[in-house]
Computed example of a mutant assay.
Amino acid sequence: MKIAILGYSGSGKSTLAAYLGKQYGISYLHLDQVQFTDNWQTRPETVAKEIVEDFMGKPDWIIDGNYTRYYQAERLKQADQIVLLLFSRYAALWRIFKRTVRYHGKSRPDMAANSPEHFSWEFFWWIIWKGRTSNVRKHYQTIQNQYPQKVIVIKNQQQLNAFYRRPKNSD
């Protein structure tokens, strides 16, 4: 089984990937860990692409994150299931606030080592505006239109909770 998880920042992509990985016994890859190395340094793109390409060579995988440059089109095509987490900007902001409080000064499990959680106004602006432009929204709609048989859209916590509760064999 191959699962691609995409969506807005703060919607729970990495948490869902880890959960599904444990449920199905499948390796998962957080693209934020590919993008960033220690202390929020950006990994060279050729190295990052190689990591993703190698991971996609596995018979089963779960990959969370958007990053179009990391073979997003190929990930979507190969995926048996695509989960789009499209929480409202305010719900995502609240989730990120809770995440920041929980991990403040520590590295999250889905991030590179020595990359302590922090919050910036630039990230706030990304959550509220830049990460939700009409082009981004159109991109998610295009994915839904292109792969209607394998896309699951989750827009709020109640839907996410229901997704977590569904039987393991309901795929």
Rank of each mutant, 00 (worst) to 15 (best):
E53W: 11
G21W: 07
A73S: 13
G7E: 03
T42E: 13
A112E: 02
Y8E: 08
S11Y: 04
V83P: 05
Y147E: 10
H30F: 00
L84F: 03
Q144Y: 01
F163I: 01
S107R: 01
A17F: 07
M111E: 07
S134D: 15
Y8S: 13
A91F: 02
P167E: 14
Q146G: 00
Q81M: 14
E74C: 07
G105V: 04
Q149I: 00
D171N: 15
R69D: 13
N114F: 05
V52W: 10
R108Y: 01
P44L: 07
D80T: 04
S11D: 08
S107G: 06
N135Y: 10
R108L: 08
E122G: 14
E45D: 13
Q141V: 05
V153F: 06
T68G: 03
K168S: 11
Q158V: 13
L31E: 02
V34Q: 02
K58V: 04
V47W: 03
M1Y: 07
D80G: 08
E53M: 12
F124P: 03
E74P: 03
Y140H: 04
D54S: 15
K168P: 02
P167G: 10
F36C: 01
D54G: 09
K130Y: 08
N169K: 12
D64S: 14
E53F: 12
W129D: 12
G10T: 05
Y8D: 02
P44E: 07
K155S: 14
Q35Y: 15
W126C: 10
K138V: 04
K58F: 03
G12V: 01
N39D: 15
R99I: 08
K168L: 15
N169G: 09
N66W: 05
K130R: 14
V52K: 07
L86V: 01
S107Y: 00
N169C: 09
W125T: 15
A17N: 08
I5D: 07
R99L: 04
T133P: 02
N114I: 02
D110L: 05
N145W: 00
A92H: 01
G7V: 00
S11T: 11
L20C: 01
V83T: 08
F97A: 11
S14W: 06
R166W: 08
Q144T: 08
R132D: 09
S9E: 12
Y147H: 14
A18W: 06
A113H: 10
S120V: 05
H104C: 11
P167V: 06
Q144M: 10
W40Q: 14
E122V: 09
A73P: 06
M1H: 05
L76F: 02
Q146P: 00
V34H: 04
E50T: 11
K2F: 10
I152D: 11
R69F: 11
G105R: 01
K58M: 10
I127T: 14
S11P: 06
Y19H: 14
D38H: 12
G131Y: 00
W121S: 08
I127N: 11
P148M: 10
Q157L: 07
L86I: 02
G131E: 10
Q35L: 13
A162G: 04
Q144A: 10
W94R: 13
S88K: 01
I51D: 02
Q159M: 13
R166C: 03
